[in-house]
Design a protein around this nucleic acid. Structure first.
Lengths: 240, 240
DNA sequence: AAGTGGTCTAGACCACTGG
DNA sequence: CAGTGGTCTAGACCACTTA
């Protein structure tokens, strides 16, 4: 009945997956072309259908193939250059470099939501929101100016937190462990206030990340992260 | 024996997955805490082990749990803010918006690799490399200045391609369908030449992406993509 | 109707870990 | 040793698409 991977050999599903992947890499199927059905691969490799299914399902997850029920499996049409950009908590990122992370809390108060912000947080215009502005220092060099707006309904004690001991990100992740959200990345010049806090010229290009976070369908926080272009860059890997 | 998803209800593996995910979201297990074993979930949900296994395996893939053979399943220790940044081929991206995509080929020739470039492409200093500089226009507005260096060993006919009909990205993807690589994103001012080609001031902040691509372990291409900050931004989603 | 993928099951063997 | 996850199988029912 059930077999197990013989010693240090690859598991059957992995072999099937690798075989198909290699063929794709060699361009055996044009994008959008019909590929072998599960049944064909079952016959070819002498494995069960579940095994083939897992291999193909994982390839689908990696964006290498498209599968349509009732139709077939196809070589991925649009090569999706999906890139993984791992955004770690800035505190961890700085410490990982062996640098000191310090913060300067420039602002910490309750405000009334302007229309654009109310929309981002799913509140009424004029509703109460928490607002902090924190400058993150990497070995005393300003690395990020973080303007953060928080939905009071989700984190009622947000303003009581000592942000010299915990980053907003870290605190919010404790309250609401699972996040999802959208963000934009752009290059822009800082506002006058940001330039002053970051100790840079108003003309210096900055990498600006705007991030909206939702937890369980409820908007949690909106953040604007401004980084001096000369001192900060994002890194990532991509595939396919 | 085999059951199927009853009408339009969620599949059992999805129910198990969702259940566990919801508990994680509510902080039922501290990071690193031991979670129910497969056997327990089998009993609790009255499904087969394979079904539970798939649910947990996918949660592992999403970084929500850590699994150790012979030990157990644990709530993920480090919350990984992995963000997906889908970088589509610029041609597709522009056309998807319903705009016209045109290109201006500013440069197309063979050069000798400087040390930094040779290192990026895994060649000897002074080795021949192909170099193109192409400006991409979105409805006649310059959107990207693409400086691309290509390993001649991988794409010997690169310089013969008519880039008014095919983008370099698209052409290279045909030659080597599977990619992987690294990139950096930063904010910077353009060079004088770039500013001229993009029709912007030298002081305008630009979003600069530097991308190194490898196929099957062989360096394929290095690209520097410069975008006017006022006309371009990256978008993405993130999770966890 | 035939073919495809989507999924579930019950049982099995294995490798690994810990007491 | 018992418990855990890793994996495979053979057969099954289903929904969907196409002819």
């Amino acid at each position: 009945m059930g077999k197990a991977p013989p010693r240090h050999a690859a598991a059957p599903y992995a072999r099937v997956k690798q075989h198909v992947k290699a063929q794709l890499a060699r361009g055996r199927w044009r994008p959008g072309a019909l590929m072998p059905s599960e049944a064909e691969l079952v016959a070819k490799f002498g494995v069960s259908r579940m095994t083939v299914n897992r291999a193909l399902r994982e390839l689908q997850g990696e964006g290498l193939v498209d599968r349509i029920q009732g139709v077939g499996t196809f070589a991925a049409r649009r090569t999706r250059l999906s890139s993984m950009l791992t955004i770690r908590d800035l505190h961890e990122e700085i410490e990982a470099r062996g640098h000191r992370h310090r913060v300067r809390v420039a602002l910490k108060r309750q405000e009334r939501a302007l229309p654009w912000l109310a929309r981002q947080l799913g509140l009424e215009t004029g509703a109460a929101v928490f607002h902090t502005r924190i400058v993150h220092l990497d070995n005393d060099a300003p690395l990020q100016c973080e303007d953060r707006y928080v939905n009071p309904g989700v984190a009622p004690d947000y303003l009581k937190v000592d942000f010299t001991r915990t980053t907003p990100t870290h605190y919010l992740l404790e309250i609401a462990p699972l996040w999802e959200g959208t963000y934009t990345i752009e290059a822009a010049v800082p506002t006058a206030a940001e330039a002053r806090l970051l100790g840079i010229e108003r003309s210096e290009p900055c990498l600006v990340i705007a991030r909206r976070t939702v937890c369980q369908g409820v908007p949690v926080t909106f953040a604007r992260l401004v980084h001096p272009g000369s001192r900060y860059q994002l890194e990532g890997v991509f595939e396919a």
